[in-house]
């Protein structure tokens, strides 16, 4: 019988510690599938952040290290200097990347670092238990904004793709969502594009994935995916913000 599907060997055969309905698992698998298809699994070094996905290395079957909170892009910059021929990526959440690590991500893009960052935006701090993130939507409840985020007190949610697309060194910037089969397929294409841009040495590449956090949103897995569609996508429009001319 012809095999039509197999789990990528980029993923280790382990149960993840992520909550039911969390899309980290989807994001992990898409990245690993792309690296597998590119024949890059043995040639890749990745950096996990502080946040739920610090343990990404328990599931991704590649050389990996943890980093201090927000510093993954700096760590990846160091790795890149030692191994210019490897594929290097960081995997970061919105607290890690858009708050404490804003300096590192902007400057990695600014230097045109030849690695890829996968940005998981679920509009909340997951690991620490649901505090407001820079990406938390107005009116969205968080444990540090129990009446919902108010613009007057906490500002408006940051749009990272839009910000990074003003930086010359960021040559591939795309926002995708992990809430439907169609969007997941588009996400995989974006991941592949970003990794190809890195392989071609063109500069910094970045894929933001709108993701779910049913536990801290107080929603069922199904409702969480629906909320991505109804609340997140209108504020965080999907699409390619920057790409090389020939792509």
């Amino acid at each position: 019988m012809k095999q039509v599907f197999a789990v990528t060997r980029g993923m280790l055969p382990a149960d993840t510690s992520y909550c039911p309905g969390c899309t980290h698992g989807v994001a992990h698998r898409l990245i690993m599938e792309c690296l597998d298809e590119m024949g890059e699994l043995e040639n890749t070094i990745a950096v996990s952040p502080i946040g739920c996905s610090i343990v990404a290395h328990q599931y991704m079957n590649i050389d990996m290290c943890e980093s201090a909170h927000g510093r993954a892009p700096a760590v990846a910059s160091g790795i890149r200097r030692v191994h210019p021929d490897k594929t290097v990526f960081t995997y970061q959440g919105d607290g890690d990347l858009a708050s404490i690590g804003m300096g590192e991500i902007i400057h990695a893009a600014h230097r045109g670092e030849k690695f890829t960052t996968f940005f998981i935006n679920n509009a909340i701090y997951g690991m620490t238990g649901g505090q407001m993130a820079p990406t938390t939507l107005l009116g969205q409840k968080a444990t540090t904004a129990i009446y919902g985020r108010q613009k007057e007190k906490a500002g408006s949610p940051l749009r990272i793709c839009e910000m990074l697309s003003t930086v010359e060194g960021a040559v591939y910037v795309e926002r995708v969502a992990l809430n439907s089969p169609a969007n997941v397929r588009k996400a995989k294409k974006a991941i592949r594009n970003a990794l190809e841009v890195q392989k071609r040495g063109l500069g910094f590449s970045f894929v933001e994935m709108l993701s779910s956090c049913p536990t801290n949103w107080g929603k069922t897995p199904y409702d969480a995916l629906q909320w991505i569609q109804d609340a997140m996508i209108p504020y965080y429009p999907l699409g390619v913000f920057r790409k090389p001319e020939d792509m």
């Binding site: 070094i45 950096v47 290290c65 980093s67 201090a68 510093r71 700096a74 760590v75 990846a76 910059s77 160091g78 790795i79 890149r80 200097r81 030692v82 191994h83 300096g103 590192e104 902007i106 400057h107 600014h110």
Partner: peptide, 17 residues
């Protein structure tokens, strides 16, 4: 580096590699 924080973490990356 953009800061000493970044510098030390770049060094960590290079040394880890």
């Amino acid at each position: 580096a953009e800061s000493e924080l970044a510098a030390v973490n770049m060094a960590y990356g290079a040394a880890a590699a």
